[in-house]
């Protein structure tokens, strides 16, 4: 049991004691001993019923929204615009090799898709929007591939290590067509204003891989696996950029070594769980705070 939940249960107990106390005072005032027990019990029951009713009413209440109509309009607008944006970005990918992840590529893509160049103003941050589009597209493709391999439930994968290795390889291979311009993309993704989105995209990627590799952990391992996997992915990505071996052979060897290392570390951590408990708590809270700051603390599944 963690310290926070202990604290919570303690405070609950305290609250109950307080309630009991107040009932006792009431019963003393009544000063009819035979009624005391009955009254106390009845009060508590009433109280519970009242609270339950309140809660039910609260849940029933529709969430009021002042700008409901405007929001509706906006989502409608968004869908229409998103469709066009995706069409333009899709067409722009063809110009990335020649023009890089830039506004020029988007302008050419727009012209290819049958829109005038001025429409590029729909992408105020320019190249980074193209990068994010491609990143998310690859993430989606990978999810489809993983689902095909392990099925929707993905409760049992033969060997998680092998599966993770395969998934990372597939994902990295998607960078192959743009490998010449990918250093530019990495640089743009690590610019301060773009970091939150890039980090969120990468966390989504490793989260998907962990999920389909059968990870259902709800303890600290959840974080450890994802951070570990993200580190491996980033390291291998960087290795891949300077790899000149045919078919990226050295990259895949590098990847296998990193995964072997990680599982070794993992084993050590599990064996020395007691000693690391305090450390893990500290890291957990730090990570949660970081996720809150980045606004990633939403329920994904």
């Amino acid at each position: 049991m963690t310290a926070s939940s202990l604290n919570a249960s303690k405070s609950q107990n305290r609250k109950l004691q307080n309630v009991n106390k107040s009932h006792k005072i009431c019963s003393r005032l009544l000063s009819v001993p035979s009624l005391v027990l009955y009254a106390e019990q009845k009060n508590l029951d009433d109280f519970r019923a009242r609270e339950e009713q309140k809660e039910a009413e609260f849940n029933k209440q529709p969430i009021e929204n002042e700008n409901e109509k405007e929001n509706e309009e906006k989502t409608e607008d968004d869908e229409e615009v998103m469709e066009i944006k995706n069409k333009i970005l899709e067409a722009s990918l063809a110009f990335v090799t020649a023009n890089g992840w830039t506004r020029q590529a988007i302008v050419k893509g727009a012209e290819q898709a049958g829109y005038p160049g001025t429409v590029h103003g729909m992408f105020p941050s320019g190249g980074i929007e193209l990068i994010n589009f491609y990143y998310l597209k690859c993430n989606k493709d990978l999810v489809v591939q993983m689902r095909e391999k392990v099925g929707e439930k993905s409760e049992k994968v033969g060997d998680p290590k092998e599966f993770v290795c395969w998934a990372l390889k597939e994902r990295l291979l998607m960078l192959d067509p743009y490998i010449k311009t990918w250093p530019q993309a990495l640089a743009m993704m690590s610019l301060p204003p773009n970091v939150p989105t890039s980090l969120a995209n990468m966390l989504t990627l490793v989260d998907d891989i962990c999920y389909y590799s059968g990870d259902r952990s709800i303890d600290f391992n959840w974080y450890a696996r994802r951070i570990g996997l993200a580190t491996i992915y980033k390291a291998t990505e960087l290795y891949m950029l300077q790899d000149s071996s045919p078919q990226y052979e050295s990259t895949w060897k590098f990847l296998q070594r990193r995964i072997a290392d990680a599982s070794l570390v993992h084993d050590v951590l599990i064996q020395s769980e007691g000693a690391t408990q305090h450390l893990t708590q500290a890291v957990t809270s730090a990570f949660t705070t970081a996720r809150n700051i980045l606004g990633l603390n939403f329920e994904r599944r």
Binding site: R103, V107, E111, P116, G117, T118, H120, G121, P124
Partner: peptide, 10 residues
């Protein structure tokens, strides 16, 4: 700057 014209703009 926001408009950022491109060649071919009418």
């Amino acid at each position: 700057e926001r408009f950022y014209p491109t060649q071919g703009t009418k």
